[in-house]
Amino acid sequence: MLDDRARMEAAKKEKVEQILAEFQLQEEDLKKVMRRMQKEMDRGLRLETHEEASVKMLPTYVRSTPEGSEVGDFLSLDLGGTNFRVMLVKVGEGEEGQWSVKTKHQMYSIPEDAMTGTAEMLFDYISECISDFLDKHQMKHKKLPLGFTFSFPVRHEDIDKGILLNWTKGFKASGAEGNNVVGLLRDAIKRRGDFEMDVVAMVNDTVATMISCYYEDHQCEVGMIVGTGCNACYMEEMQNVELVEGDEGRMCVNTEWGAFGDSGELDEFLLEYDRLVDESSANPGQQLYEKLIGGKYMGELVRLVLLRLVDENLLFHGEASEQLRTRGAFETRFVSQVESDTGDRKQIYNILSTLGLRPSTTDCDIVRRACESVSTRAAHMCSAGLAGVINRMRESRSEDVMRITVGVDGSVYKLHPSFKERFHASVRRLTPSCEITFIESEEGSGRGAALVSAVACKKACMLGQ
Rank of each mutant, 00 (worst) to 15 (best):
S151D: 12
D363L: 00
I163L: 15
G72W: 03
E95D: 13
N350A: 00
E245N: 12
E443T: 01
F195I: 05
S441V: 07
Y297Q: 05
I159A: 09
N179W: 14
K15T: 15
G44L: 01
S360H: 04
L47C: 13
G328P: 03
E177C: 15
G407H: 08
L25H: 04
F438H: 00
A384G: 09
A460R: 10
K15M: 13
A188H: 06
F74C: 06
K414D: 02
A259P: 09
F438Y: 06
L314M: 13
T103K: 08
D262N: 11
T149N: 15
F423A: 06
L165W: 13
T332V: 06
I110P: 04
G295S: 14
G249R: 03
T361Q: 12
T103I: 05
K140N: 04
L292F: 12
C461E: 13
E17F: 14
F334K: 15
T60K: 00
L304N: 10
M41L: 08
V241E: 00
F123H: 01
L314H: 07
N254H: 10
D341I: 03
I348L: 09
D29R: 04
F23H: 00
D344W: 07
S373K: 13
L47V: 13
L30G: 00
D132P: 00
S411Y: 10
V199R: 08
M34G: 05
L355K: 02
Y297H: 08
R7T: 15
A378P: 01
M402L: 12
C230T: 07
E120D: 15
R333N: 15
L288N: 10
V241H: 10
F23P: 00
Q138V: 06
V89Y: 04
M202C: 06
K169Y: 11
V427Y: 00
T118W: 05
C252L: 02
V455S: 13
L77K: 01
A201Y: 03
R429Q: 11
F123K: 02
D365N: 13
G294W: 03
K458A: 08
R428W: 08
V389G: 00
L165G: 14
A456D: 01
M238L: 14
V244T: 05
R392V: 02
E93P: 15
A259R: 11
F74P: 01
T326G: 14
S433D: 13
G264T: 02
F84A: 12
S212A: 05
D400N: 04
R428G: 13
C371S: 07
R63A: 14
D3V: 03
D400C: 14
G464N: 02
G295I: 11
R46Q: 05
M41E: 01
M34W: 04
C129F: 06
C230K: 05
Y215N: 04
T405Y: 11
Q286K: 06
D365Q: 07
P359D: 00
R192C: 01
F195K: 11
D135A: 11
G170S: 13
N180Y: 12
K420A: 14
A201L: 08
E9I: 09
K414R: 10
K458H: 07
S453P: 11
S375H: 03
V408W: 02
M107N: 13
L47I: 09
S69V: 12
R345S: 10
E319W: 09
I366E: 03
E14I: 05
G229M: 15
F152R: 13
F438R: 01
A454R: 15
S360K: 09
G193A: 12
F150Q: 09
S375G: 11
M210V: 02
S418F: 12
G193Q: 13
F330Q: 01
G94E: 09
L415R: 07
I351R: 06
S127Y: 01
T60I: 07
M197Q: 11
R36Y: 07
C364Y: 05
F148R: 04
N391S: 09
V55S: 00
V89L: 08
M139H: 10
A320V: 12
A460F: 14
F195A: 11
R422D: 11
L25E: 00
D135T: 11
I351T: 05
L315D: 02
S445R: 14
A460N: 12
C461F: 12
T228R: 13
C364E: 11
G356Q: 06
A449Y: 03
S100N: 10
E236S: 00
K172R: 12
R358F: 05
M107T: 10
T65H: 06
K414L: 05
V226I: 10
E312Q: 15
G44W: 00
V389F: 00
C233Q: 00
E157K: 12
Y61N: 04
A329Q: 01
M197Y: 11
R345Q: 15
V154E: 15
R377F: 00
D217F: 03
A208D: 14
L270H: 13
V203G: 08
G388W: 03
G223I: 02
D29P: 01
E221Q: 14
V203Y: 07
E120W: 07
Y297M: 14
F330I: 13
G193E: 13
E40W: 02
A259W: 14
E112A: 08
L309Q: 02
G285T: 11
A387F: 00
D3C: 05
I348K: 01
A320Y: 04
W167V: 15
K15Q: 10
S445Y: 15
L309W: 00
T149G: 08
A450V: 11
I159H: 12
F133P: 01
Q138L: 06
A259N: 14
V305E: 00
F133D: 00
D363T: 00
M381H: 03
V374W: 02
L30I: 15
Y214C: 09
G444N: 08
E22K: 09
Q287T: 07
E221W: 02
A10R: 09
M115H: 11
I351L: 11
G318Q: 02
A370V: 09
E52F: 15
R325S: 13
C252G: 03
G94W: 11
L315Q: 00
H416V: 09
A6H: 03
V389A: 07
V241T: 03
N313Y: 06
L266I: 01
T82K: 07
N283C: 08
R345P: 09
A456N: 07
C434G: 01
T168I: 12
F316D: 02
V408Q: 00
R7W: 08
F133M: 11
Q323D: 12
T118C: 11
G162V: 08
H317W: 09
F133I: 03
D78K: 15
R327V: 14
I189W: 13
K32M: 06
T342P: 07
E22L: 05
L25S: 04
I211T: 02
E300F: 00
M37I: 13
F23D: 01
K12H: 11
F260M: 14
M37D: 00
T209S: 04
G193I: 10
D400T: 03
S100D: 12
I19G: 01
H105R: 13
A282C: 04
E443G: 09
V154K: 15
L304K: 04
E70W: 05
E290W: 08
G193S: 06
Y297R: 03
G444A: 08
L309R: 00
I439Y: 07
A384L: 11
A384Y: 00
